[in-house]
Amino acid sequence: MPPTNSPTIRQRRLGTELRKLRDRAGLTATGAASLLGVNQARISMIETGRTPISGERLRSMAHAYDCHDERLIDALAGMTGRRARGWWEEYRDHVPVALIDLAELEHHASAFRVALLIHIPALLQTADHARSLFRAVVPPMRQYEIEHRLTHRMKRQGVLHRADPPLYTAIIHEAALRMDFGGPVVARGQLRHLLDMSELPHVTVRVIPFGTDHFPTSGQSFDYLEGPVPQLDTVQLDSHHGACEFLDADAQLAKYRTVLDRMDSCALGPALTRDFIQHRIQEL
């Protein structure tokens, strides 16, 4: 398969996981190349995601690296092959690359857990709410940039409406329910939409109310996207300059799983959360 100078995040992650397997086996790139009968440059290209590989080649590499975790090997084999062109590719020249990567990750995730403090989760936003957020970005975006961001976000939400949707759990602080972005009319529409989405069998929304005395977070919102096996989970962090940071080191994943578990322990249950949101709508 021909090399690429712009590997997708999925291709890069596959390469990263293969490098981890090689490191655990105590092999240098040169040693791995010798075992596999290729040159060192080929190993480097594979580990940076620039050279696609077949499932058969991946299994040969896993065997050479003495990996016996069949679930992991099967999951990695499912990531091989040529680059798949998803709907997000049409936005590659119109939105930041990190948002293209995020859409691809969401498409392949088996489950989501998200935690937010002052914003409604992107996949649960109405178009009016999202547009009001984009209009407040610093520096200001041009109108066509806002529309590109908006249509991209709306298409991302399709993952929750497909035939085989992932499980989606959102933990939202009460502060997010009181940020009236776009004014009262937009805010009411957003909260009603949040209620409707929380009724879907695969969507769970939970609120952490003001007054909770053991709120376990540094103030940063994040998404935890689960892969087919825990080793392929990914944490996505937002930033003020519009980029996304993706974390996949074992220690990082363990830390954010713990944070989510602690936030979950101090959030209202789904039914009480719906009552809470309904009360907030009546206040507006």
Results as ranks from 00 to 15, higher is better:
1 M>Q: 14
3 P>T: 15
3 P>Y: 08
3 P>F: 09
5 N>C: 10
9 I>C: 06
13 R>I: 01
21 L>M: 15
23 D>S: 11
26 G>R: 12
28 T>A: 11
31 G>K: 13
32 A>D: 11
33 A>T: 12
37 G>N: 11
39 N>G: 15
40 Q>P: 04
46 I>G: 00
55 G>S: 13
56 E>A: 15
58 L>Q: 14
60 S>W: 03
60 S>N: 09
62 A>S: 15
62 A>N: 10
62 A>D: 06
62 A>P: 10
64 A>P: 12
64 A>G: 14
70 E>A: 13
70 E>R: 15
75 A>Y: 07
76 L>P: 03
81 G>A: 08
82 R>S: 11
82 R>H: 07
88 W>T: 07
96 P>Y: 08
96 P>V: 05
96 P>G: 08
100 I>G: 00
104 E>N: 05
105 L>Q: 01
106 E>Q: 04
107 H>E: 04
113 R>M: 01
116 L>E: 03
118 I>R: 02
119 H>F: 06
121 P>I: 07
121 P>S: 05
123 L>K: 02
124 L>T: 01
127 A>T: 01
128 D>I: 01
134 F>N: 04
134 F>E: 04
137 V>P: 01
137 V>A: 10
142 R>D: 11
143 Q>C: 06
146 I>H: 10
149 R>I: 10
150 L>D: 07
153 R>M: 12
158 G>A: 14
158 G>K: 10
159 V>E: 09
159 V>M: 10
162 R>F: 07
165 P>A: 13
165 P>R: 12
166 P>N: 10
167 L>W: 06
168 Y>Q: 06
168 Y>A: 14
171 I>L: 13
178 R>K: 11
180 D>C: 05
182 G>T: 05
186 V>N: 08
188 R>E: 03
189 G>W: 00
191 L>C: 05
192 R>V: 12
193 H>R: 07
198 S>A: 15
200 L>K: 14
203 V>C: 06
203 V>Q: 07
204 T>Y: 06
206 R>Q: 14
209 P>L: 12
213 D>H: 08
217 T>Q: 02
219 G>Y: 06
227 G>L: 06
227 G>F: 00
237 L>P: 00
238 D>Y: 02
240 H>Y: 03
242 G>R: 04
245 E>V: 05
250 D>E: 14
250 D>F: 00
256 Y>P: 00
259 V>P: 00
260 L>D: 01
264 D>F: 10
266 C>V: 15
270 P>N: 15
271 A>N: 12
271 A>I: 13
275 D>V: 03
275 D>Q: 12
276 F>E: 08
277 I>C: 07
278 Q>E: 15
282 Q>I: 12
